[in-house]
Simulated assay, not measured.
Amino acid sequence: MKYDTNNFQKDVIEQSFITPVLVDFWAEWCAPCRILGPVLERLAEKYKEQWKLVKLNTDLYPDIAAEYGIRGIPNVKLFHNGKVINEFTGALPEHMIEEWLRKSIPSKFSDMIEKAKKLLAEGKIEDAKVILEQVHNGDINNGEVKILLAKILVYENPKEALRLVDSAQLSNDTVELAEAITTMSQLFEKLYNQNELPEDSVKQLYIDAIKDLRDKKFESSLKKFIEVIRENKAYDDEGARKACIAIFKYLGEEHETTLKYRREFSRALYV
C-alpha cells in the first residue's frame, strides 16, 4: 500500500518536522483496522496539503509498536516535530475523525502564533497584533488566533472581540479566555448604558470598577469589584463576581495580580 513504511525514522519522525504525520498502527487480523484504514486513506487524500498518512503494521514492526506503547489497535497517533501530540484508539466514525483532526493538526503558522504569544506575555501588544492579523488572514478559521486577537481587541473594539469569540471553534485551552473576553466586553458595554443598571448603594462603585478595568487598572478594579461583592454580592446578577473571575482568566492563573487577589476574592464570596 502507498501509505506503508519501511523507514519509520524518515517517513514519520523526520517528515513530521516538515508537515504533521498521522500514523495508523494496525494489523491484518484486526477487523476494526480494516474499517478504519480506508477512512483514513480518504481523509489523507482530502487533506494531503495539511498532513501525511503513514500505516504501520504492528506485526511487522513490534519494536516500534512497543516503543510507542501500543496496547490496542487500531491506534492512531499524530506526530509533529518528532513527537506525538495527540492520539485516539478505535475505529471512529469519519465525521468524528475529521473533527479530531481539525482540532489536532497544528497550524502551518504555529511558529508565528508562538511568537505572538511571547510578545503578548512581554506586553508588546501592537507587535503581537500585527503577527496575529497576518496569521488570521492566512488561516481565517484558526480558533486560537481569533481568541488571541479578541484578547487585544476587547479594549479597542469590544464588539469585534465578541464577534471573533462567537465565530471561533473553542478548545480546552481557549474556552476560559473566551468566556473572560465575553464577560469583559459585556461589562464595557454597560458603561454606555449606565442608566440600565439597578439602583443601589454599590452602583457607582461597580461603574468605577468597570472603568478601572477598561483602563487596565486591574488591581484597582479587583479591589472595587471585591468590595461590591462584600456589600451586595447579588448586584447586577452577580456581575462583580463574574468580573473578578474574568480578570483572573484574562491575566492567567499564575499572574501576580491573580495570585494576590484570588484569596481575598474567595473570602469575600463566603463571608
Rank of each mutant, 00 (worst) to 15 (best):
A178D: 07
Y235K: 09
K159N: 05
V54S: 00
E122P: 01
Q134S: 06
R241P: 14
L197Q: 01
A168D: 03
E199K: 13
I105H: 00
E126L: 11
T183M: 08
I210W: 10
Q15E: 07
N137M: 15
Q204V: 08
A234W: 14
L191D: 11
D63V: 08
D236F: 12
K203M: 07
F248I: 03
N142A: 08
I13L: 00
K108R: 15
C30T: 12
L148E: 13
V76P: 00
L53H: 06
H95C: 03
E264T: 03
D212F: 14
L78G: 02
Q9S: 12
K48V: 01
A150H: 15
L191Y: 13
V228S: 12
A27R: 08
W100C: 03
R102K: 05
K103Q: 07
E49W: 04
R42Q: 08
E179P: 04
E238T: 11
L187G: 12
K190G: 13
L119A: 06
T58D: 04
S104G: 02
L197K: 03
I210C: 14
T257R: 02
T257M: 03
L60T: 13
F225P: 05
E238K: 09
K46C: 01
E49R: 02
P20M: 06
Q134Y: 04
D11E: 09
S167M: 06
I152Y: 15
L92S: 04
I181L: 01
Y235L: 12
E196T: 08
P38M: 05
I64D: 08
Y206S: 15
K48F: 03
F25D: 13
A246L: 14
F109D: 12
W29Y: 14
Y235C: 08
K242G: 06
D139M: 06
W29G: 06
F225C: 06
V165L: 02
N141L: 07
E227K: 08
N172A: 10
L170K: 01
D212I: 14
L36R: 10
V202T: 10
A128F: 05
I64K: 05
V12D: 02
K2G: 13
P106A: 10
S167I: 14
L40W: 06
P38D: 05
P106N: 15
V39E: 02
A178L: 04
L92K: 11
F25N: 08
L148I: 15
P32E: 05
V271I: 03
A91L: 06
V39Y: 02
D111E: 13
